[in-house]
């Protein structure tokens, strides 16, 4: 019963991973990270649904969503600051920072 769901989990995770590997735009990287987070949420809920423990999986997902929002907020703040310093969203330009 869980195999089709887990195939979609794998697909979503792969799409997010591909974005992280190919993209150099900081906001696009975060979008890739979000897609991977969706795969993790679907995986948690599928596991809870399959074992009949949806309350436990939901409480884990709620915690995960809170962590996810904080990560995105801080990462977007970092991206905006980097844009103000370099004038670009290209992640490679951050490699030249010194200091």
């Amino acid at each position: 019963m869980v195999i089709p769901y887990m195939i979609f989990v794998g697909l979503l995770f792969a799409i997010g991973l591909y974005c992280l590997l190919t993209s150099r735009n900081m906001i696009k990287l975060l979008i890739g990270l979000e897609v991977m987070a969706k795969a993790a949420v679907l995986s948690f809920i599928t596991a809870g649904y399959a074992r009949g423990e949806t309350f436990l999986s939901q409480s884990l997902v709620v915690t995960f969503i809170v962590v996810e929002v904080c990560i995105v907020a801080v990462a977007l703040a970092l991206a905006i600051n980097a844009y103000r310093n370099t004038g670009s969203l290209d992640i490679r330009k951050l490699a030249r920072l010194k200091g």
Binding site: L21, T22, S23, R24, N25, I27, K28, L30, I31, E34, I65, V66, E68, V69, V72, A73, L76, A79, I80, Y83, S88, L89, D90
Partner: peptide, 26 residues
């Protein structure tokens, strides 16, 4: 939270940065 708040955060960040140039991809 995710469909609402995070989308607002993303749209705000995109509006604040306005990246004109297309960043090349690997």
């Amino acid at each position: 939270v995710v469909a609402g708040l995070i989308t607002v955060l993303f749209v705000s960040a995109i509006a604040l940065t306005k990246d004109e140039e297309q960043v090349a991809e690997a």
